[in-house]
Amino acid sequence: MAGPSTDGARAPGSTAESAPENAMVRNALRAGLLLVVITLVLVPFQSTYAVRVADSILIYVLLGIGLNIVVGYTGLLDLGFVAFYAVGAYTYALLASPQLGLHLPFLVILPIAVILGGLAGILLGFPVLRLRGDYLAIVTLGFGEIIRVLINNADTVTNGPRGVMRIDRIDVAGFTISRPIDFYWLLLVTVAIVAVIAFRLEKSILGKGWAAIREDQDAARGIGIDTTKAKLAAFAISAMIGSLAGVIFAAFQRFVSPESFSLQESILIVLIIVIGGVGNILGVFVGATVLLLLPEILRDYAELRMLLLGLLMAVLIVLRPQGLVPRSFGPDRLLAALRRR
């Protein structure tokens, strides 16, 4: 309810004025950014395990950016986001594996998957247009479960619970993308592109419509925003990003099965954006890093792992209910702070 929420609607130029004046803060930010860049560059020199963890984080960053459009920008709680992830993963898996005997190239499947994802988003969007809050949450949750159960039950097409095996490697213009390190670069580029698109969208006229819906749906309708269109656009675009993440996931793991698309995954993605900071792309990066690194660090604690993870989650949210990176501190603010001397 409370909190600095109007930033979403503010013009990019004007944010510079409210940027931190303090030189120390600015230097800290610069140091932080430098650290991030160094980490990104150093990842390839680490063990394969570390690269694989980085890949996982980047896939969830992608998912987080996608879900953030619906949850963060438009203010609609979606607990079934994993459905779109599944649509993308299964599209790639079925069109590029021995399962159906199809082996289409990656660049052909990608647009198919993204379009299918978008259609699935609209399919979900229609029945939930009138719903709000937790009614929306439970219907989206149901949608996610329906997609998973359908995949699990349609044995003849999807091979049911056994999943689709031996999925093709990505082959683009003679380059094979198969090792974790190849995926690291692919994901890094994809995440960068998608993040820029999402950021531009947030600042676009459509993004302002979303912000208006988030703040007050009826007022938004009152000032002439086509809320139906804006909501459907949010669902479709976020679903496309989810589907894109699914395609890369399927090609990376080269095996997909329904158990990868459980409700827990949906909840994890929501957690990522909330712990990171709702409505903020920077927050998605932070949230995904925290929520995927923590379990890895705790992995050696076997059974205690989930206990610690759960408690840490609760403590984190109680201490920082706005997320680690507040909504007001978006990428524009970061850039502005860095630019000022």
Binding site: A2, V270, L271, L304, G310, L311, M313, A314, V315, I317
Partner: peptide, 24 residues
């Protein structure tokens, strides 16, 4: 402590506790 923050925060705090309680 979260009564006056956004509505997602207590929900996620409850998710964390749920996980912790089960594991405990």
């Amino acid at each position: 402590p979260l009564r006056n923050s956004n509505r997602l925060a207590p929900m996620l705090s409850s998710l964390g506790l749920s996980l912790a309680l089960q594991t405990a």
